[in-house]
Simulated assay, not measured.
Amino acid sequence: MTTTNTPPAEWAPHAAVWIGYPSHPELWLEDLDDARDEVAAFARAVHADGRGEQVVLVAADAEAAADARTRAPFAQVVVEPFGDIWLRDTAPILGGDGKARDFGFNGWGGKYDLPGDDDIGARLARHRGLTILPCDWILEGGAIDGDGTGLVVTTEQCLLNPNRNPRLSKAEIEHRLAADLGLTRVLWLGNGLLNDHTDGHVDNLARFVAPNRLAVPRAAENDPNWQVYQDAAIRARAMGIDVVEVPSPGRVLRDEEVVPASYMNFYIGNAAVVVPIYGSEYDDAGVAAIRALFPDREVVGLRADAILTGGGSFHCISQQIPA
């Protein structure tokens, strides 16, 4: 059931999108330049030569802002101090009423406590003149994904994690999702991807692509997450949700460690759907499968290896502003 506070589905029209711009050399080290290139390419695809949406690059300081203007001259650049670029989790979530829900943020369960991340959401909302509705519990945008009808998917690993809201029961979290975001039906998946430091954000695992239609990865050979994908599909189908399978990138390594690479971290823009790719042999198949789900949009695959060194990809660094 849709209410005025239910966030529109991501495929609904956007007025703009906030995208975090890599700003801190001490966080990105030798990956900084490549990460900036990848973010600028993502922004360019979303802007789509003016056919897409307004791109607002959020830079933490004057140096990063100047760099952003050079690499992405089509974008609006806003300077607001932050800890890191994962605006899906730290920017506000806008409801259908256009008001900004500003949730608490605790550094993904206290793992990464960086100055500016706890209040960047309110500052971005004020910058656009939005009405701010404070919500007094911890919730990251990447932990939920909705289809615009009041149906939402999340993971038990994240939303029930004692490092987020230890005094809230499952029923109380469901109540707050309904009260604050109009999300009245909750599909609870189990765990997220291996080595995902967000404690299993669902936007790396399963995404709505139409009302009541959920995309879930299909495991490649030697995929470390095959049981996670299988369990997600079983739970979704048991709730009566149409499941469509998309090839996974398989086992992706960096410095001999499995990283949480996923095609599910795509961003749905007005003109384009941008899919992160990683140099996997399954990249073409993954992009093709997502292209088939969005026949009215251009679907492009762009490398996101450097961004992934920080732990996420295109969806993680962006937060749409509904029209």
Results as ranks from 00 to 15, higher is better:
3 T>C: 03
13 P>R: 10
14 H>T: 00
15 A>F: 13
16 A>L: 12
17 V>G: 09
22 P>D: 06
23 S>P: 03
24 H>P: 07
24 H>K: 15
29 L>E: 07
31 D>H: 14
36 R>N: 02
40 A>T: 10
43 A>N: 00
43 A>H: 01
53 E>V: 04
53 E>L: 01
55 V>D: 11
57 L>A: 07
59 A>C: 03
60 A>T: 06
61 D>G: 09
62 A>E: 13
62 A>S: 12
63 E>D: 10
71 R>C: 14
80 E>S: 04
81 P>Q: 09
81 P>A: 07
82 F>E: 00
83 G>D: 10
85 I>T: 14
85 I>A: 15
86 W>E: 03
89 D>E: 14
90 T>K: 15
91 A>K: 12
92 P>E: 13
95 G>V: 11
102 D>S: 14
104 G>S: 12
110 G>A: 11
116 G>R: 07
116 G>S: 10
117 D>N: 10
117 D>K: 05
118 D>R: 14
123 R>H: 05
134 P>E: 02
134 P>G: 03
153 V>H: 09
157 Q>V: 02
160 L>M: 03
165 N>A: 08
165 N>V: 03
167 R>P: 00
167 R>F: 05
172 E>D: 06
174 E>N: 13
184 T>W: 02
184 T>R: 09
189 L>Y: 08
191 N>R: 15
192 G>Y: 02
195 N>M: 04
206 A>I: 01
209 V>K: 11
220 A>I: 00
222 N>Q: 14
224 P>Y: 14
226 W>H: 14
227 Q>Y: 08
229 Y>K: 03
233 A>C: 05
233 A>T: 05
238 A>R: 12
238 A>Q: 10
242 D>Y: 08
252 V>W: 06
254 R>G: 02
254 R>H: 13
263 Y>S: 01
266 F>H: 11
267 Y>K: 03
270 N>L: 01
280 S>W: 06
281 E>T: 07
282 Y>V: 02
282 Y>C: 06
291 R>Y: 07
294 F>H: 12
300 V>W: 02
302 L>G: 06
306 A>T: 04
313 S>L: 04
314 F>I: 05
314 F>T: 05
315 H>T: 05
317 I>S: 06
